[in-house]
């Protein structure tokens, strides 16, 4: 009897339990769906981060390779530096290009953040070498162009001396021109001395390999060599001005006895 009376209550309870289970199942499904979505979003973000990091790494490596290639071309064209220094810097530049090209290929193939992080660190590590090689090479190129200019000025000075001697033989007062020629020669000599010192200073530098003391001394040496190139450049400008002064003084309009005919010797 009691059971018959309890049946509706049991039925209601069972129905309630069923409803609760259905609700729980739905909630579980919804939670699982949300978790999966979050995981997918996280994976997408990580993938995007990897792509972004690869892009930045490629940008830096490409920039360095372009600078190294430009330097390599410039060094190959140098004619007024020692063969040993030229060969040394050319070899270092090519080694850097090879290393960076290989590193770029490795980074491009990276798929995980962990591997990429290691490879990106290698870019930063190699930057110390890059920061030595590029100024070193550019200083060598500067030495080359200073010496080339000095050579042209020396040839010009010789021609000017011929003309000044002829003008003197013709009775012209060449005191000022002789002084300018002397100044020209002295400035060209100082320019080549400065350039030679800068070449020696820059060529002797080696990568610091993480040693901060060596890094500081390398930086100081590069700046000092740079100062020497600036001094040499100033010398060349002054020498050029001296040459122009003499050329101007030798023109027919500059004096009655000046001759435009080259002296026969």
């Amino acid at each position: 009897m009691n059971i018959k009376r309890k049946i509706p209550a049991i039925a209601v309870s069972l129905a309630g339990a069923a409803l609760m289970m259905m609700g729980a199942s739905s909630a579980y499904a919804q939670t699982a769906s949300t978790t999966a979505a979050r995981t997918a979003a996280k994976t997408a973000r990580a993938s995007a981060q990897v792509t972004k990091s690869i892009s930045r790494a490629d940008q830096e490596i490409t920039r360095r390779i372009a600078a190294l290639n430009a330097l390599s071309t410039r060094i190959a064209a140098a004619k007024h530096v020692t063969d040993a220094d030229k060969a040394s810097i050319a070899s270092t530049v090519q080694a850097q290009i090879s290393d960076l090209t290989a590193l770029k290929a490795k980074i491009d193939a990276d798929t995980t953040a962990a591997t990429l992080k290691t490879d990106v660190k290698a870019i930063a590590d190699s930057y110390r070498i890059f920061m030595l090689v590029i100024p070193q090479g550019n200083l060598l190129a500067s030495v080359d162009s200073v010496n080339a200019t000095a050579s042209t000025l020396t040839t010009l000075a010789s021609k000017l001396q011929t003309r000044v001697t002829a003008a003197q033989s013709a009775g012209k007062d060449v005191t000022a021109m002789t002084a300018s020629l002397t100044g020209l020669a002295a400035k060209v000599a100082d320019a080549t001395t400065q350039a030679s010192a800068a070449e020696t200073e820059a060529a002797a530098l080696k990568p610091d390999m993480g040693d901060k003391t060596v890094m500081a001394s390398n930086t100081a040496a590069l700046k000092d060599a740079r100062a020497k190139i600036k001094a040499a450049t100033a010398d060349l400008k002054a020498a050029r001005a001296d040459a122009a002064t003499v050329v101007s003084a030798l023109r027919p309009t500059a004096g009655k006895t000046a001759s435009t005919t080259p002296a026969k010797q």
Partner: peptide, 13 residues
């Protein structure tokens, strides 16, 4: 050329 090379030295430093 001297000026150009000098500018490159400054830039690289």
């Amino acid at each position: 050329t001297v000026s150009s090379d000098s500018a490159n030295v400054d830039s690289s430093l």
